[in-house]
Structure formats: structure tokens, C-alpha cells
Write a protein that binds this DNA or RNA. Sequence first.
DNA 1: ATATATAATTTGGCTAACCAAATTTTATTA
DNA 2: TAATAAAATTTGGTTAGCCAAATTATATAT
Lengths: 223, 223
Amino acid sequence: MSHFPNHFEENYLKALYKLQRKEIKKVNNIALAKYMELNPATVLEMVRKMADRGLVEILPDKTIQLTSQGEKKALLVIRKHRLWEVFLVEKLDYSWSEVHDLAEQLEHIQSEDLTNRLEAFLEFPAADPHGDPIPDKNGKLRTAAAINLLEGKTGKTYMVKSFGETADSFLDYLAKLSIRPGTLLRVLEWNAYDNSGSIEINNAIIQLSEKVAGNIFVQLHTT
Amino acid sequence: MSHFPNHFEENYLKALYKLQRKEIKKVNNIALAKYMELNPATVLEMVRKMADRGLVEILPDKTIQLTSQGEKKALLVIRKHRLWEVFLVEKLDYSWSEVHDLAEQLEHIQSEDLTNRLEAFLEFPAADPHGDPIPDKNGKLRTAAAINLLEGKTGKTYMVKSFGETADSFLDYLAKLSIRPGTLLRVLEWNAYDNSGSIEINNAIIQLSEKVAGNIFVQLHTT
DNA sequence: ATATATAATTTGGCTAACCAAATTTTATTA
DNA sequence: TAATAAAATTTGGTTAGCCAAATTATATAT
């Protein structure tokens, strides 16, 4: 009667979804292991089990890909995560940068009904406190695709939608730069040498490394 | 990075606390194993670990007893459980009979701060939807005021706390019925005609006159 | 006091999730 | 194309929580 398989599976699903969305490269075993801070042997073992369960497909070139069933499950975990985040911020007065770790725990609560009631209680929020949209009860995420800031065009202004990284150090750094969901950023130029960018924000100019910019997702902003 | 030891430990703590409260007999390995629906070997192994951690003491006669530290931890789990139950009923419109299994999941969320904020959000409820009191953040269970047995509700179980009469004839009568402080009484029904009551005690059913019942002070008993 | 039941403990073994290290396969590059 | 680097996989091993069955200890009853 170990209650936990779900727990693990859900973490793998979420990790795969996030990596896939980053889409910097194909998601292989190594990348997934690194991202999850696990040994490749461990990850391979688990991924195979998930393939048996129809959640994941291992392509001929060894890329790991969520099946539609797997992606739906991943989105339902993300749904739970984001709803709990809204709860923590709106009802328990947490700040948006504190809630991630708690939501990581709460997202594993198993009850569709509870999730749906929570959503109703929160009055069907469209997005979590980081600005990320909340999938519906069928795991459908309908949204204008956010793009990676790295793809931002020189001279254009973008609105920050969400982030591809949840480490405190990253979020603290952003907080220092006053970058949060909703912030407007204008791309001044990209430095071809190290792919860092000059970004205008609130009439100040800052430099963002490739790594940081690559974890900021934005939408074109039209005044 | 397995978060789960807590999970297991908390379940053992809770089970021990509940059995101890029942206090029908000393809590031994067998009783605990039966209650938790686990194998005695499993339970023994775990109980020993918990003894090493200072949560439990194994007495010379093999009785398993919570240390004060263990009891505090148990009460903090119960606190979480009951607060989440209040949340589910008050905020998500669950009925009191549905919430137990969900609360069993939620009670394992690890964050004192979250628990305290939840308590504040719920406006410091004194009891959960079943009427069981909620321990405070120090694991202290403020004892509910003792009530007159005559006020006991049909179907509820109460623990005898004290008596409102010191006459030997009264105390002898109680002794004959094996009613003493600590005895558990279940109210079966009140006879509207003479206010006498049918009371279940140790699987026997006895009748108590209004005069007798009115001199017995009890507290709601929570399993 | 002996037989018998029950409790307590030991032993050996299972599974899921993990890891380190060795090996094999696949790419890359010189 | 051979050399080398990187990825993928295999192998052997660990730990925590669990169980069944065997054994030893302790009560209980006759």
C-alpha cells in the first residue's frame, strides 16, 4: 500500500513537460537526469516504467517524449500546483516568490474533486501569481504562446509572463531587478559574443545573461 | 531527498496517540500493528527507530509509550489534520463525513508556517467539524470544560472527569457500575419522561437516573 | 506445574527508488 | 577512417518500509 508512486511519477511528468517546453534541445536521458538532479540510471529505469504505462515514448533516437496521455497528466499536476499557489498568495498572504516549495508539496494531493472545488473557491483564476496560465480540468492549456526572451527582437517591447526556472536564487535575482510577471521589457540589443542582452526596464538599462534571458518568457506588448 | 520518512513517522505517531487515548489497555506491538493494519515485525522495526529518535519509549513490560516529544509531534499532526478538515468543510463545502481521507493526505504537508497561516485564515477555530478540539501551535490541547453528563449528546462518547457529589453512598454506587475518572461512557438515549439515560459502558448498557447523571462530569471523547 | 495460547522477536526476502562504476553504443572530430 | 568524446545502458549494490514464517519468551489456564 505504498501511496507514493504517484508522487514520483508526477515529478517526472512535470520535469519532462518543463524541459520540453524549454525546447532548447531534444530531451534526452542526460538532460532529464541533470534537471532532476538524479542519476541517469535511475531516470532510465523510471522512464521505461512510464513508457510501459503509456505516459512517455522513447523515440528511435532516444529522445524522451510525453505521449498525449502523459502530457495531459503533466498538465493536471501543473494545474494543481498553480491553483495551490493562487491559494497561498490570495488566501494565506504569501508573496509570489515564496510559494513554490509549498506548492510542490500540495500539488501531489490526490483528489480531482478537491482540485475542482479549490478552483471554484478561488473563483476560477486564469493564471497563478507568477502569471502562468492554469490548465483546465481536462488538462487543456489555451493561451497565446509565450516566447523565450532570447527570441525577442531588437527594439520591441515585451511583457513578462512567466519563468522557466524556480530556484530561489533565480527568483531573488529577478526580484532585485524588479522583473516579475507583468513587467515590461524593451530589447535594446543582443550581444553576439555571449548572447547576453541589453534590456530597458523602467527607464533603466540592464544586462541579462543568456542563461537568465532564456528563462524569462514574454509576450509581445503592443501599446 | 525522500521527503517521506516524515510521512510514515507521522502516521505511527498519530496511531500511537489515538490508541493511548483509548487507553483500554496498554499499547503493545500487536495492538499497534492491528490498528495500523501492518505486520508486527514491521511495526517493531519502526518503533525501535522512533525510540532512537526519542519519540517513543519501550517500557520494561514492552508497552510502547510516546515520550513528551513524541506526543507533541503527534498533536502537531492532529492539529494539521483538524485544521485542514475545517478548511475543507468551511471553504470548499465538503460535508463533515467526507473530509477525513483528504485530511489524511493534507496533514502531511510540512510547513509550520503554512499551518499557522491556515489557522489564522480560518479565524482560529476551536474545534474541527467533528467537534474535536484543535491543538495550538505548541501542541497543547487546551482541555475543553467538563460538562454535565446530562448534556451529553446521543451517540457521543464521553470520558468521566469528576463528580459533583462526595457522599459515600454515591461513590459506592458508581464503583459498583465501574464508573470512575477515565471511564468511557456512550450516551445511547435520554428518556424524556424522567430524564434518565441509557449509557453504554464497557459493552454493557446501564440506566442512570437524572440525579446520578447530573453529578457526573465528562468531556467529549475523541478517538 | 505443565500445557497451551499469545506476545515478542528474529530471520530471510521483497520492491521501489535510488546511486556509482563499468560497459557498450553512437557521435564527433581530427 | 581511426580516435575520442559523449550518451545510453547494464551491472551490482544500498536503503526504507514492508511481509511471512520460524522461533523464543511470557502469560494464562487447567
